[in-house]
């Protein structure tokens, strides 16, 4: 059914909150915290074949102050952990975090002296993506899941969503 844009008697009602959240959902600016193999699959997700811009999230920002969705793509070591904490702290609210892949979610098959057993030990994570590394489709699915939450919950800050779970 085509929408008749010219007919002056056609109108639409919605809540301001819904309209704003709907717009916000397609305006996530990702910050790739790409450290390992998963970062290569993040590159694939951004490139023209998979094209993350279909979901309005192509504006990759490397400055945490300009981004609202951190994608942790890769293994976080104990050496990297203070850096991750600092970068996360530099992001303005509201902010979301995707832990992409087994390492960022749980340490993966690196249960050893150097590997942090999941990024959620140091910062709050909203979405975990399975895979080693996850395919671009998996990452896009996680992105759409975050988008649904943005549409449903609006701009609830991470500090409220994760209250009492992880100390940053």
């Amino acid at each position: 059914m085509a929408v008749d844009l010219e007919n002056p008697s056609n109108y639409l009602t919605t809540r301001v909150r819904q309209a704003v959240n709907w717009g916000r959902k397609y305006s996530l600016w990702p910050l790739p915290f790409g450290v390992a193999c998963c970062a290569i699959e993040f590159m694939s997700t951004v490139s023209s074949y998979n094209d993350i811009s279909r979901f309005g999230a192509e504006l990759v920002r490397f400055s945490p102050r300009q981004s609202d969705l951190m994608i942790i793509a890769g293994t976080i070591s104990y050496k990297q952990a203070p850096i991750l904490k600092t970068i996360y702290a530099q992001m303005a609210e509201p902010r979301w975090v995707i832990a992409m892949g087994a390492c960022a979610s749980s340490g993966g098959f690196y249960n050893n002296y150097s590997t942090l057993q999941g990024a959620d030990r140091v910062i709050p994570v909203d979405m975990y993506v399975a895979g080693c590394p996850p395919t671009p489709e998996n990452l896009l699915y996680a992105l759409t899941q975050i988008q649904e939450r943005v549409e449903r919950e609006g701009l609830v800050p991470a500090a409220v969503r994760h209250a009492g779970r992880v100390q940053v």
Partner: peptide, 11 residues
């Protein structure tokens, strides 16, 4: 360097 030292040799 060493930011993703994942202990290949120990593993």
């Amino acid at each position: 360097i060493g930011y993703i030292h994942r202990c290949f040799e120990k593993e």
